[in-house]
Design a protein around this nucleic acid. Sequence first.
RNA 1: GGAGGGAUGGCAGAGCGGACGAAUGCGUCGGUCUUGAAAACCGUUGUGUCCUCACGGGCACCGUGGGUUCGAAUCCCACUCCCUCCGCCA
Length: 415
Amino acid sequence: MIDIRLVRSEPEELRRALARKGAGELLDDLIEADEAWRQLTSRVDELRARTKLKGKPGPEELAALQQVKVDLQETEAALTEADKRRAELLDRVPNPPAPDVPDGTSEEDAVEVKRVGEPADFAFEVRDHVELGGFDLERGARLSGSRFAYRRGAIALVELALYRFALAKVMDHGFEPVLPPVLVRAEAMYGTGFLPTDEVNIYRVERDDLYLTGTSEVALASIHQDEMLDGRELPARYAGYSTCFRREAGAAGRETRGAFRVHQFDKVEMFAFTDPELSPEEHERILSIEEEIVQSLDLAYRVVCTAAGDLGPSAAKKYDIEAWFPSQERYREITSCSNTTDYQARRLNVRYRREDRSLGLVHTLNGTAMTARVLIALVETRQQADGSVDVPAVLADYGAPQTFKYCHQRRTVAP
RNA sequence: GGAGGGAUGGCAGAGCGGACGAAUGCGUCGGUCUUGAAAACCGUUGUGUCCUCACGGGCACCGUGGGUUCGAAUCCCACUCCCUCCGCCA
Protein backbone atom coordinates (compact mmCIF):
# COMPACT_ATOMS: atom_id res chain seq x y z
CA MET A 1 0.00 0.00 0.00
CA ILE A 2 1.21 3.46 -0.80
CA ASP A 3 1.17 6.41 1.60
CA ILE A 4 -2.17 8.21 1.19
CA ARG A 5 -0.68 11.39 2.64
CA LEU A 6 1.88 11.42 -0.13
CA VAL A 7 -0.99 11.09 -2.59
CA ARG A 8 -2.49 14.27 -1.17
CA SER A 9 0.69 16.29 -0.75
CA GLU A 10 2.67 15.33 -3.87
CA PRO A 11 0.12 14.10 -6.42
CA GLU A 12 2.01 15.31 -9.55
CA GLU A 13 5.33 13.83 -8.56
CA LEU A 14 3.75 10.55 -7.53
CA ARG A 15 1.76 10.40 -10.74
CA ARG A 16 4.91 10.73 -12.85
CA ALA A 17 6.53 7.87 -10.96
CA LEU A 18 3.46 5.63 -11.09
CA ALA A 19 2.98 6.31 -14.80
CA ARG A 20 6.27 4.48 -15.32
CA LYS A 21 4.52 1.41 -13.92
CA GLY A 22 1.42 2.11 -15.99
CA ALA A 23 -0.65 3.11 -12.97
CA GLY A 24 -1.25 6.81 -13.61
CA GLU A 25 -5.01 6.52 -14.14
CA LEU A 26 -5.33 4.31 -11.10
CA LEU A 27 -3.88 7.14 -9.03
CA ASP A 28 -6.33 9.66 -10.51
CA ASP A 29 -9.21 7.41 -9.47
CA LEU A 30 -7.75 7.06 -6.00
CA ILE A 31 -7.43 10.82 -5.53
CA GLU A 32 -11.08 11.23 -6.42
CA ALA A 33 -12.22 8.39 -4.15
CA ASP A 34 -10.14 9.73 -1.27
CA GLU A 35 -11.68 13.17 -1.59
CA ALA A 36 -15.21 11.73 -1.43
CA TRP A 37 -14.26 9.58 1.53
CA ARG A 38 -12.86 12.52 3.47
CA GLN A 39 -15.98 14.60 3.00
CA LEU A 40 -18.24 11.82 4.24
CA THR A 41 -15.92 11.08 7.15
CA SER A 42 -16.20 14.58 8.56
CA ARG A 43 -20.00 14.54 8.18
CA VAL A 44 -20.24 11.24 10.05
CA ASP A 45 -17.87 12.45 12.75
CA GLU A 46 -19.95 15.54 13.27
CA LEU A 47 -23.18 13.57 13.61
CA ARG A 48 -21.58 11.12 15.98
CA ALA A 49 -20.33 13.98 18.14
CA ARG A 50 -23.94 15.03 18.62
CA THR A 51 -24.89 11.66 20.09
CA LYS A 52 -22.35 12.03 22.87
CA LEU A 53 -23.83 13.03 26.20
CA LYS A 54 -23.22 12.70 29.90
CA GLY A 55 -25.85 10.83 31.86
CA LYS A 56 -29.42 10.06 30.85
CA PRO A 57 -31.20 12.25 28.25
CA GLY A 58 -34.52 13.99 28.91
CA PRO A 59 -37.60 13.22 26.78
CA GLU A 60 -37.02 16.11 24.31
CA GLU A 61 -33.37 15.26 24.01
CA LEU A 62 -34.28 11.67 23.35
CA ALA A 63 -36.49 12.61 20.40
CA ALA A 64 -33.66 14.68 18.88
CA LEU A 65 -31.23 11.80 19.36
CA GLN A 66 -33.55 9.44 17.58
CA GLN A 67 -33.56 11.76 14.58
CA VAL A 68 -29.77 11.99 14.64
CA LYS A 69 -29.67 8.22 14.59
CA VAL A 70 -31.66 8.13 11.36
CA ASP A 71 -29.37 10.70 9.73
CA LEU A 72 -26.34 8.80 10.92
CA GLN A 73 -27.51 5.52 9.45
CA GLU A 74 -27.91 7.13 6.07
CA THR A 75 -24.57 8.94 6.09
CA GLU A 76 -22.74 5.93 7.48
CA ALA A 77 -24.06 3.76 4.65
CA ALA A 78 -22.66 6.28 2.14
CA LEU A 79 -19.37 6.33 3.97
CA THR A 80 -19.14 2.53 3.90
CA GLU A 81 -19.52 2.63 0.12
CA ALA A 82 -16.94 5.37 -0.27
CA ASP A 83 -14.55 3.53 2.01
CA LYS A 84 -14.92 0.35 0.00
CA ARG A 85 -14.08 2.07 -3.27
CA ARG A 86 -11.12 3.87 -1.75
CA ALA A 87 -9.78 0.67 -0.16
CA GLU A 88 -10.06 -1.24 -3.44
CA LEU A 89 -8.04 1.38 -5.26
CA LEU A 90 -5.53 1.63 -2.46
CA ASP A 91 -5.08 -2.15 -2.73
CA ARG A 92 -4.27 -1.90 -6.43
CA VAL A 93 -1.99 1.11 -6.69
CA PRO A 94 1.55 -0.31 -6.87
CA ASN A 95 4.68 0.86 -5.09
CA PRO A 96 6.23 3.67 -7.19
CA PRO A 97 9.59 2.75 -8.73
CA ALA A 98 12.77 4.24 -7.26
CA PRO A 99 14.20 7.17 -9.27
CA ASP A 100 17.27 5.20 -10.38
CA VAL A 101 15.20 2.42 -11.93
CA PRO A 102 15.35 2.40 -15.75
CA ASP A 103 12.32 3.18 -17.93
CA GLY A 104 10.65 0.45 -19.93
CA THR A 105 8.00 -2.22 -19.68
CA SER A 106 9.59 -5.56 -20.49
CA GLU A 107 12.42 -7.89 -19.60
CA GLU A 108 14.41 -6.53 -22.56
CA ASP A 109 14.37 -3.04 -21.04
CA ALA A 110 16.36 -4.17 -18.00
CA VAL A 111 19.76 -2.50 -17.71
CA GLU A 112 22.84 -4.66 -17.31
CA VAL A 113 24.75 -3.61 -14.22
CA LYS A 114 27.71 -5.94 -14.50
CA ARG A 115 28.98 -9.16 -16.01
CA VAL A 116 31.16 -11.65 -14.13
CA GLY A 117 32.94 -14.78 -15.40
CA GLU A 118 33.26 -16.22 -18.87
CA PRO A 119 30.60 -18.52 -20.35
CA ALA A 120 32.11 -22.00 -20.58
CA ASP A 121 33.43 -23.00 -23.98
CA PHE A 122 32.76 -26.66 -24.73
CA ALA A 123 34.83 -28.74 -27.14
CA PHE A 124 31.96 -31.24 -27.46
CA GLU A 125 28.25 -31.10 -28.09
CA VAL A 126 26.54 -29.65 -25.08
CA ARG A 127 23.76 -31.63 -23.37
CA ASP A 128 20.98 -29.88 -21.52
CA HIS A 129 20.00 -30.84 -17.98
CA VAL A 130 17.34 -33.25 -19.19
CA GLU A 131 19.88 -35.18 -21.25
CA LEU A 132 22.36 -35.18 -18.39
CA GLY A 133 19.79 -37.10 -16.35
CA GLY A 134 18.20 -37.15 -12.92
CA PHE A 135 15.17 -35.08 -13.87
CA ASP A 136 12.29 -37.51 -14.37
CA LEU A 137 9.79 -35.40 -16.25
CA GLU A 138 7.62 -38.07 -17.87
CA ARG A 139 6.77 -39.63 -14.56
CA GLY A 140 6.34 -36.19 -13.02
CA ALA A 141 3.81 -35.38 -15.73
CA ARG A 142 2.03 -38.71 -15.27
CA LEU A 143 1.75 -37.99 -11.55
CA SER A 144 0.84 -34.31 -11.54
CA GLY A 145 0.67 -32.97 -15.08
CA SER A 146 3.15 -30.94 -17.09
CA ARG A 147 5.74 -28.80 -15.34
CA PHE A 148 6.25 -31.21 -12.47
CA ALA A 149 9.51 -33.09 -12.04
CA TYR A 150 10.94 -35.84 -9.91
CA ARG A 151 14.60 -35.28 -9.12
CA ARG A 152 16.26 -38.63 -8.56
CA GLY A 153 19.52 -40.06 -7.35
CA ALA A 154 22.64 -37.87 -7.33
CA ILE A 155 20.69 -34.81 -8.48
CA ALA A 156 18.48 -35.06 -5.39
CA LEU A 157 21.58 -34.99 -3.20
CA VAL A 158 23.21 -32.12 -5.08
CA GLU A 159 20.03 -30.09 -4.88
CA LEU A 160 19.69 -30.60 -1.14
CA ALA A 161 23.37 -29.75 -0.72
CA LEU A 162 22.80 -26.47 -2.58
CA TYR A 163 20.05 -25.43 -0.19
CA ARG A 164 22.05 -26.39 2.85
CA PHE A 165 25.14 -24.65 1.48
CA ALA A 166 23.20 -21.45 0.77
CA LEU A 167 21.63 -21.53 4.20
CA ALA A 168 25.07 -21.78 5.80
CA LYS A 169 26.26 -18.84 3.69
CA VAL A 170 23.40 -16.53 4.60
CA MET A 171 23.62 -17.53 8.25
CA ASP A 172 27.19 -16.23 8.14
CA HIS A 173 25.63 -12.92 7.12
CA GLY A 174 23.25 -12.82 10.05
CA PHE A 175 20.12 -14.43 8.62
CA GLU A 176 18.11 -16.64 10.97
CA PRO A 177 17.07 -19.93 9.35
CA VAL A 178 13.30 -20.43 9.18
CA LEU A 179 11.12 -23.27 7.93
CA PRO A 180 7.82 -21.49 7.28
CA PRO A 181 4.28 -22.65 6.54
CA VAL A 182 3.51 -22.65 2.82
CA LEU A 183 -0.28 -22.64 3.16
CA VAL A 184 -1.45 -19.18 4.21
CA ARG A 185 -4.53 -17.01 4.60
CA ALA A 186 -5.59 -14.43 2.01
CA GLU A 187 -4.47 -11.71 4.43
CA ALA A 188 -0.81 -12.67 4.02
CA MET A 189 -1.18 -12.66 0.23
CA TYR A 190 -2.67 -9.17 0.32
CA GLY A 191 -0.07 -8.04 2.81
CA THR A 192 2.79 -8.99 0.56
CA GLY A 193 1.14 -7.58 -2.56
CA PHE A 194 0.54 -10.85 -4.44
CA LEU A 195 -3.19 -10.33 -4.09
CA PRO A 196 -5.23 -8.89 -5.65
CA THR A 197 -3.00 -8.27 -8.67
CA ASP A 198 -1.34 -11.65 -9.16
CA GLU A 199 -4.35 -13.80 -8.39
CA VAL A 200 -4.14 -16.00 -11.50
CA ASN A 201 -0.69 -17.25 -10.56
CA ILE A 202 -1.61 -18.50 -7.12
CA TYR A 203 -2.83 -21.96 -6.14
CA ARG A 204 -5.83 -21.78 -3.88
CA VAL A 205 -7.18 -24.46 -1.59
CA GLU A 206 -10.82 -23.53 -1.81
CA ARG A 207 -12.18 -25.92 0.77
CA ASP A 208 -10.20 -24.28 3.55
CA ASP A 209 -9.78 -20.86 1.97
CA LEU A 210 -5.99 -21.00 2.04
CA TYR A 211 -3.35 -20.19 -0.56
CA LEU A 212 -0.15 -22.01 -1.46
CA THR A 213 2.75 -19.57 -1.40
CA GLY A 214 4.85 -18.97 -4.49
CA THR A 215 7.78 -17.96 -2.27
CA SER A 216 8.59 -18.02 1.44
CA GLU A 217 8.71 -14.23 1.17
CA VAL A 218 4.99 -14.34 2.04
CA ALA A 219 5.48 -16.16 5.33
CA LEU A 220 8.65 -14.27 6.21
CA ALA A 221 7.15 -10.82 5.60
CA SER A 222 4.18 -11.84 7.74
CA ILE A 223 6.35 -13.04 10.60
CA HIS A 224 6.08 -9.59 12.24
CA GLN A 225 2.56 -8.67 11.12
CA ASP A 226 0.93 -6.11 13.44
CA GLU A 227 4.05 -5.95 15.59
CA MET A 228 6.11 -3.05 16.89
CA LEU A 229 9.78 -3.86 16.57
CA ASP A 230 12.51 -2.36 18.69
CA GLY A 231 14.47 -0.04 16.38
CA ARG A 232 17.69 -1.12 18.06
CA GLU A 233 17.11 -4.69 16.93
CA LEU A 234 16.92 -3.79 13.24
CA PRO A 235 17.75 -5.04 10.75
CA ALA A 236 15.92 -8.32 11.40
CA ARG A 237 17.11 -10.89 8.87
CA TYR A 238 15.51 -14.24 8.08
CA ALA A 239 16.28 -16.99 5.61
CA GLY A 240 13.35 -19.22 4.69
CA TYR A 241 13.64 -22.60 3.03
CA SER A 242 10.42 -23.84 1.48
CA THR A 243 8.75 -25.38 -1.49
CA CYS A 244 7.18 -22.76 -3.79
CA PHE A 245 4.05 -23.17 -5.91
CA ARG A 246 3.25 -21.16 -9.03
CA ARG A 247 0.51 -21.64 -11.58
CA GLU A 248 2.57 -19.95 -14.34
CA ALA A 249 -0.70 -18.79 -15.88
CA GLY A 250 0.80 -16.45 -18.49
CA ALA A 251 3.43 -18.94 -19.61
CA ALA A 252 1.34 -21.60 -21.36
CA GLY A 253 3.40 -23.31 -24.04
CA ARG A 254 6.55 -21.42 -23.12
CA GLU A 255 9.58 -23.32 -21.98
CA THR A 256 7.82 -26.60 -21.64
CA ARG A 257 11.04 -28.59 -21.93
CA GLY A 258 12.94 -29.49 -18.81
CA ALA A 259 12.67 -28.28 -15.27
CA PHE A 260 13.48 -24.63 -15.91
CA ARG A 261 9.92 -23.41 -15.41
CA VAL A 262 7.90 -25.69 -13.13
CA HIS A 263 4.85 -25.37 -10.91
CA GLN A 264 6.69 -26.55 -7.84
CA PHE A 265 10.26 -25.87 -6.81
CA ASP A 266 12.32 -25.24 -3.71
CA LYS A 267 14.02 -22.07 -2.67
CA VAL A 268 16.10 -20.48 0.07
CA GLU A 269 14.95 -16.90 0.43
CA MET A 270 16.52 -14.00 2.32
CA PHE A 271 14.21 -11.49 3.94
CA ALA A 272 15.10 -8.33 5.87
CA PHE A 273 13.22 -5.76 7.92
CA THR A 274 15.22 -2.53 8.08
CA ASP A 275 15.22 1.07 9.15
CA PRO A 276 13.78 3.02 6.16
CA GLU A 277 16.98 5.03 5.75
CA LEU A 278 19.05 1.89 5.37
CA SER A 279 17.04 -0.15 2.89
CA PRO A 280 19.01 0.86 -0.26
CA GLU A 281 22.17 -0.20 1.54
CA GLU A 282 20.58 -3.50 2.60
CA HIS A 283 19.44 -4.07 -0.97
CA GLU A 284 23.03 -3.85 -2.24
CA ARG A 285 24.13 -6.09 0.61
CA ILE A 286 21.60 -8.78 -0.29
CA LEU A 287 22.69 -8.59 -3.93
CA SER A 288 26.31 -9.01 -2.90
CA ILE A 289 25.45 -12.11 -0.84
CA GLU A 290 23.67 -13.57 -3.87
CA GLU A 291 26.74 -12.86 -5.96
CA GLU A 292 29.00 -14.43 -3.37
CA ILE A 293 26.96 -17.63 -3.52
CA VAL A 294 26.87 -17.73 -7.32
CA GLN A 295 30.59 -16.99 -7.47
CA SER A 296 31.47 -19.77 -5.06
CA LEU A 297 29.78 -22.16 -7.49
CA ASP A 298 31.85 -20.74 -10.38
CA LEU A 299 28.88 -19.76 -12.50
CA ALA A 300 29.20 -17.10 -15.20
CA TYR A 301 26.54 -14.48 -14.61
CA ARG A 302 25.37 -10.94 -15.10
CA VAL A 303 23.37 -8.59 -12.91
CA VAL A 304 20.46 -6.63 -14.36
CA CYS A 305 18.29 -3.88 -12.93
CA THR A 306 14.65 -4.47 -13.88
CA ALA A 307 12.77 -1.77 -15.81
CA ALA A 308 10.05 0.17 -13.97
CA GLY A 309 7.15 -1.28 -15.95
CA ASP A 310 8.36 -4.84 -15.46
CA LEU A 311 8.45 -4.58 -11.65
CA GLY A 312 5.82 -6.33 -9.52
CA PRO A 313 3.37 -4.25 -7.49
CA SER A 314 5.46 -4.31 -4.29
CA ALA A 315 8.94 -3.66 -5.65
CA ALA A 316 10.42 -0.17 -5.90
CA LYS A 317 13.62 -1.61 -7.34
CA LYS A 318 14.81 -5.06 -8.30
CA TYR A 319 18.05 -6.72 -9.31
CA ASP A 320 18.17 -10.11 -10.99
CA ILE A 321 21.19 -12.33 -11.34
CA GLU A 322 21.14 -14.16 -14.62
CA ALA A 323 23.41 -17.18 -15.02
CA TRP A 324 24.74 -18.48 -18.29
CA PHE A 325 22.84 -21.59 -19.41
CA PRO A 326 25.06 -23.46 -21.91
CA SER A 327 22.18 -25.38 -23.51
CA GLN A 328 20.23 -22.17 -24.18
CA GLU A 329 23.33 -20.11 -24.91
CA ARG A 330 22.04 -17.16 -22.99
CA TYR A 331 21.74 -15.62 -19.56
CA ARG A 332 18.61 -16.57 -17.63
CA GLU A 333 17.27 -15.43 -14.27
CA ILE A 334 18.36 -17.49 -11.29
CA THR A 335 17.89 -15.01 -8.45
CA SER A 336 15.97 -11.86 -7.82
CA CYS A 337 16.16 -9.30 -5.03
CA SER A 338 13.76 -6.46 -4.37
CA ASN A 339 13.47 -3.46 -2.14
CA THR A 340 9.76 -3.18 -1.39
CA THR A 341 10.34 -0.09 0.82
CA ASP A 342 7.32 0.47 3.10
CA TYR A 343 4.76 -1.05 0.72
CA GLN A 344 4.46 -4.43 2.42
CA ALA A 345 5.15 -2.97 5.86
CA ARG A 346 2.16 -0.63 5.55
CA ARG A 347 -0.15 -3.43 4.46
CA LEU A 348 1.09 -5.82 7.11
CA ASN A 349 1.38 -3.06 9.72
CA VAL A 350 4.98 -3.75 10.70
CA ARG A 351 6.35 -0.78 12.61
CA TYR A 352 9.40 0.02 14.67
CA ARG A 353 10.04 2.25 17.66
CA ARG A 354 12.78 4.85 17.16
CA GLU A 355 15.21 6.07 19.82
CA ASP A 356 12.96 9.09 20.39
CA ARG A 357 9.97 6.76 21.04
CA SER A 358 8.18 7.67 17.81
CA LEU A 359 6.84 4.96 15.53
CA GLY A 360 7.60 4.42 11.87
CA LEU A 361 7.05 1.79 9.20
CA VAL A 362 9.98 -0.50 8.50
CA HIS A 363 11.24 -1.26 5.02
CA THR A 364 11.26 -4.84 3.77
CA LEU A 365 13.54 -6.54 1.26
CA ASN A 366 13.79 -10.00 -0.20
CA GLY A 367 16.28 -11.90 -2.29
CA THR A 368 16.89 -15.41 -3.56
CA ALA A 369 19.76 -17.26 -1.95
CA MET A 370 19.23 -20.52 -3.83
CA THR A 371 16.74 -22.14 -6.18
CA ALA A 372 16.45 -25.25 -8.29
CA ARG A 373 17.36 -23.14 -11.31
CA VAL A 374 20.88 -22.83 -9.96
CA LEU A 375 21.06 -26.62 -9.98
CA ILE A 376 20.22 -26.60 -13.70
CA ALA A 377 22.82 -23.96 -14.53
CA LEU A 378 25.34 -25.85 -12.44
CA VAL A 379 24.97 -29.28 -14.05
CA GLU A 380 24.91 -27.82 -17.54
CA THR A 381 27.99 -25.71 -16.86
CA ARG A 382 30.00 -28.50 -15.25
CA GLN A 383 29.21 -31.33 -17.64
CA GLN A 384 32.07 -33.38 -19.10
CA ALA A 385 32.50 -34.88 -22.56
CA ASP A 386 31.32 -38.30 -21.32
CA GLY A 387 28.09 -36.93 -19.88
CA SER A 388 29.24 -36.97 -16.28
CA VAL A 389 29.00 -33.91 -14.06
CA ASP A 390 31.74 -32.53 -11.85
CA VAL A 391 30.22 -31.15 -8.62
CA PRO A 392 31.86 -28.12 -6.96
CA ALA A 393 33.97 -29.12 -3.97
CA VAL A 394 32.17 -26.66 -1.66
CA LEU A 395 29.07 -28.88 -1.84
CA ALA A 396 30.85 -32.00 -0.59
CA ASP A 397 30.45 -30.87 3.02
CA TYR A 398 26.72 -30.82 2.48
CA GLY A 399 26.32 -34.35 1.20
CA ALA A 400 26.80 -33.95 -2.56
CA PRO A 401 28.80 -36.55 -4.51
CA GLN A 402 32.01 -35.25 -6.12
CA THR A 403 30.90 -36.42 -9.50
CA PHE A 404 28.01 -38.38 -11.01
CA LYS A 405 26.77 -39.83 -14.26
CA TYR A 406 23.36 -41.15 -15.17
CA CYS A 407 22.97 -44.35 -17.20
CA HIS A 408 19.25 -43.94 -17.90
CA GLN A 409 18.16 -47.12 -16.17
CA ARG A 410 14.39 -47.09 -16.27
CA ARG A 411 13.73 -50.10 -14.08
CA THR A 412 11.05 -51.32 -16.39
CA VAL A 413 11.02 -54.38 -18.64
CA ALA A 414 9.76 -54.84 -22.18
CA PRO A 415 6.12 -55.93 -22.28
C1' G B 1 -14.63 -34.68 15.78
C1' G B 2 -17.04 -33.81 21.07
C1' A B 3 -17.19 -30.86 25.96
C1' G B 4 -15.66 -26.65 28.55
C1' G B 5 -12.66 -21.91 29.45
C1' G B 6 -10.61 -17.58 27.37
C1' A B 7 -9.20 -13.11 23.88
C1' U B 8 -8.81 -5.75 27.10
C1' G B 9 -2.82 -0.93 26.18
C1' G B 10 4.60 -2.82 25.05
C1' C B 11 3.52 -7.11 28.75
C1' A B 12 0.45 -8.98 32.88
C1' G B 13 -4.36 -8.09 34.52
C1' A B 14 -9.31 -5.38 36.60
C1' G B 15 -13.64 -3.60 34.50
C1' C B 16 -22.45 -2.34 37.77
C1' G B 17 -25.39 -0.41 29.68
C1' G B 18 -23.97 6.38 30.30
C1' A B 19 -18.74 9.65 34.40
C1' C B 20 -14.26 4.20 30.51
C1' G B 21 -9.43 5.13 26.08
C1' A B 22 -10.31 2.17 30.18
C1' A B 23 -8.12 0.66 37.43
C1' U B 24 -3.66 -1.64 39.07
C1' G B 25 1.19 -3.88 38.50
C1' C B 26 5.50 -4.47 35.39
C1' G B 27 8.03 -2.20 31.65
C1' U B 28 9.13 2.80 29.04
C1' C B 29 10.74 7.76 29.30
C1' G B 30 11.92 12.24 32.47
C1' G B 31 13.34 13.89 37.35
C1' U B 32 15.08 13.67 42.76
C1' C B 33 18.91 11.22 45.46
C1' U B 34 24.26 9.37 44.15
C1' U B 35 31.29 10.35 42.51
C1' G B 36 28.68 6.94 39.09
C1' A B 37 25.09 3.11 39.15
C1' A B 38 21.39 0.12 41.66
C1' A B 39 17.43 0.65 45.08
C1' A B 40 13.81 4.10 46.72
C1' C B 41 10.67 8.19 45.72
C1' C B 42 8.02 11.83 42.29
C1' G B 43 6.15 12.45 37.57
C1' U B 44 5.25 10.55 32.51
C1' U B 45 3.50 7.02 29.06
C1' G B 46 -1.78 3.63 23.70
C1' U B 47 -2.80 3.50 18.32
C1' G B 48 -5.12 5.20 14.06
C1' U B 49 -7.72 8.80 11.41
C1' C B 50 -9.90 13.67 10.00
C1' C B 51 -9.78 19.19 10.46
C1' U B 52 -5.81 23.15 11.49
C1' C B 53 0.28 26.74 9.13
C1' A B 54 0.20 25.94 14.26
C1' C B 55 -1.92 25.83 19.33
C1' G B 56 -5.56 22.59 19.58
C1' G B 57 -9.95 19.89 18.54
C1' G B 58 -13.41 15.90 16.44
C1' C B 59 -14.04 10.73 15.54
C1' A B 60 -12.73 5.54 15.80
C1' C B 61 -10.40 1.40 18.20
C1' C B 62 -11.19 -3.58 24.35
C1' G B 63 -10.04 -10.78 18.85
C1' U B 64 -13.26 -10.17 13.85
C1' G B 65 -18.10 -9.25 11.76
C1' G B 66 -23.24 -8.41 12.64
C1' G B 67 -27.43 -7.19 16.14
C1' U B 68 -30.29 -4.87 20.45
C1' U B 69 -30.24 0.40 22.45
C1' C B 70 -30.77 7.42 22.29
C1' G B 71 -26.08 5.10 24.19
C1' A B 72 -22.11 -1.32 24.28
C1' A B 73 -15.37 -3.28 26.59
C1' U B 74 -20.08 -4.54 29.28
C1' C B 75 -26.22 -7.67 26.57
C1' C B 76 -27.38 -11.13 22.02
C1' C B 77 -25.73 -13.92 17.41
C1' A B 78 -21.96 -15.75 14.06
C1' C B 79 -16.89 -16.44 13.01
C1' U B 80 -11.45 -16.72 14.05
C1' C B 81 -7.60 -17.85 17.24
C1' C B 82 -5.57 -19.66 22.01
C1' C B 83 -5.89 -23.01 26.43
C1' U B 84 -7.81 -27.62 29.09
C1' C B 85 -10.12 -32.45 28.80
C1' C B 86 -12.04 -36.71 25.76
C1' G B 87 -11.93 -39.30 21.05
C1' C B 88 -9.34 -40.25 16.36
C1' C B 89 -4.84 -40.07 13.40
C1' A B 90 0.34 -39.20 11.97
